[in-house]
Simulated assay, not measured.
Amino acid sequence: MGSFSLAMVLSVMIYLGAGWYAGRKVRNLDDYFVAGRNAPTFLILGTLIASFMSTNGFIGEAGMSYRGHGPLIIIMTAVNCMGYVVGALFFGRYLRRSQELTVPAFFGARFQSQRIQTLAGLSIVVGLSGYLLAVTWGVALIITQVTDLSEPIAIILVWISYMLFTLYSGSKGVILTDTLMFILFTTAAVVALSFLVSLNGGWFASIEALAVFEAKPDVIAWHGVLGPETRWDTPGEAILWALILGVAWGIVVAVSPWQSSRYLIARSEHVVIRSACGAAIIMLLLYLVTTFCAAIINL
């Protein structure tokens, strides 16, 4: 078994172990659905970031940064991160105040309508199913690249892994494993950045090399690489793309159940606001790290 395979097996075992540990502490519906409404700021922050920084960040957007569009990813993320603060202030704290177990239940109580609650539930199932399919396929793609497993087997293994601890431990297991993932990939990103910068002679040498990198001119310019081989011909088109997607993703992190449901688990409304502000700051810093890592790999 290679080092990559061993690392993945150990990771899965750790997550399953954490889920099993958390599941043993589930005593009632409050524990299962909202972790007893007692999660501190760090756990809410960890689950917010981990649930967002999945394969879309480490494969899709990292790939765009490698191709020379890192600055646009940073601009998009800066706008996007404001959604955490706005969402917590104008939606998340009221969600927490409602004392409901789920987001559909919140909408049902808010509008006194079973139909609204059902519609909210169906929209969540459809939306999150698409998200989980994308994430599952992304993780399976990585597994097939570093192991001899076929894609169907990898997809099944990934699905079984997260379904086991999620169904058994509920929200307690989710926030714990999410936070472990957050710590793991943040540490890995910082270590990778340090290694790559050191490999290329330090910060100033790395930035200078990227600034004059002939294969991808403007790789660290504010608008990134432009031209017929990209989606944008002018800086205006590029910045417009980043701003539109930034606003769209900002709305997603502000009100989508995929993110906002984490606030139901928070210990208090203060925790909701603190974790949202922390997530906005750390998310932007993490994207700065990952995009620079992806760009510097070109050297």
Rank of each mutant, 00 (worst) to 15 (best):
Y94E: 00
S256P: 01
L141H: 03
L176T: 13
I59H: 02
F204M: 07
L299Y: 07
W159S: 14
F4K: 02
S268E: 13
C293E: 10
F204Y: 01
G23A: 04
E237N: 10
N200Q: 09
G92I: 00
M181G: 11
G250F: 15
V289H: 14
I239Y: 11
R115W: 08
S256T: 13
S123L: 13
S51T: 03
F90E: 01
M8C: 04
G246F: 14
G70A: 13
G121Y: 12
D233T: 01
Y287I: 07
A189F: 03
T166I: 15
L95I: 07
L133H: 07
K216M: 05
M1Y: 13
S150I: 11
L128T: 04
A39I: 14
V26A: 07
S54I: 02
N38K: 06
G201R: 05
V191H: 12
L72P: 04
V255W: 10
V103M: 10
G173S: 13
G68C: 07
R67F: 14
L95V: 10
V289M: 13
V253R: 00
I14T: 12
P235E: 00
V34L: 09
G68F: 05
R267K: 14
V191W: 14
C293F: 00
F165Y: 15
F4M: 06
N38P: 03
N38L: 10
Y94W: 01
G87W: 13
I116H: 01
G68W: 01
D178C: 02
I160H: 03
T147W: 09
R262P: 00
